[in-house]
């Protein structure tokens, strides 16, 4: 169990004056079985009132508007979360359990193709080439897939964009965490395993950059429920993963969306600093 403090900063610098800035951001961690959110604050500079709501996927969304002229914008998300280990994978998870009609109906969002996740023939060929399709257990199959995606795609920053589809990815075979997540989702949904996109932050103790934005996946394992998989770092140490939001693919959980009127954006930078701050001592 770890107690982590994250400071996420988005900084925009414009080439001149801008105004009428309206933004929707998804930068607050949400609670779930293995993550308790103690605190999450969103602060902007120039300061403004931030309005929050929960979206259809249960994610925390913050909305704010800055009408007056400004030349830069800083959005800080400050969160404290406690992460606990994931429940273990069940001994057995046969494929047949995924055929339950009530489960399939409830999971429709995560079984159907979505804007960035679909599986045309080229994905079929790719999947058949992995030679893991005959594994009899869903949990084992998922771990094998997680590894197979990692083996097939070379991690390369800047090789893809936010709107790169799975089809394109398996042509170029290079991408970032988001692309690997999308491919993993396509492979799961193709076999009828409900799977969703997870956006969040990764704690990297001992590294120069103590944290980074990251994307991974939840897949539904019969008997266990949602289990996390990370094709970028197979068999992940989930103590280091802070979950922000889930969706059908990246488009459901973009960290930052907005429009404004005025000069072009000169520079945008995103940093996240994560520190292990230890569990609070309880008065006893």
């Amino acid at each position: 169990m770890l107690r982590l403090r994250a400071k996420h900063r988005t900084e925009m610098r414009y080439a001149g004056e801008v105004r009428e800035s309206v933004n929707e951001i998804r930068l607050c961690p949400r609670g779930n079985g293995r993550q308790q959110v103690e605190l999450c604050e969103i602060v902007t500079d120039p300061p403004t009132e931030v309005h929050r709501h929960v979206d259809a996927f249960g994610n925390e969304v913050a909305w704010f508007q800055i009408e007056r002229p400004h030349t830069g914008l800083i959005v800080d998300a400050h969160a404290v979360v406690t992460v606990t280990p994931h429940p273990p994978m069940p001994q057995k998870a046969p494929w047949g359990l995924l055929l339950d009609r009530a489960l399939q109906d409830r999971m429709s969002d995560y079984l159907a193709p979505s804007a960035l996740v679909h599986w045309p023939e080229s994905v079929d060929y790719f999947a058949q080439g992995l030679e893991v399709d005959d594994i009899q257990d869903v949990g084992v199959w998922l771990r094998a897939m997680e590894r197979a995606v990692n083996d097939s795609i070379r991690y390369e920053r800047g090789s893809t964009g936010v709107d790169t589809t799975v089809e394109r990815l398996i042509q170029v075979r290079r991408g970032v965490c988001q692309d690997m997540a999308h491919l993993f989702l396509a492979l799961c949904r193709r076999r009828g395993v409900p799977a969703r996109y997870v956006s969040g932050w990764l704690f990297q103790p001992g590294r120069d950059e103590p944290g980074e934005s990251h994307a991974w996946c939840d897949a539904w394992v019969p008997g266990a429920g949602w289990v996390e998989f990370d094709p970028t770092h197979p068999d992940p140490n989930l103590d280091h993963y802070i979950r922000i939001g889930v969706g059908r693919d990246y488009f459901d959980v973009p960290p930052f969306r907005g429009t404004y009127v005025g000069a072009p954006t000169e520079k945008m930078s995103v940093t996240v600093e994560i520190a292990d701050i230890g569990l609070p001592t309880t008065a006893g």
Partner: peptide, 13 residues
């Protein structure tokens, strides 16, 4: 069924 609603083009999450 939810599946039907979730697959409507007019369904707005």
């Amino acid at each position: 069924p939810y599946r039907l609603l979730a697959s409507c083009n007019g369904y707005m999450r």
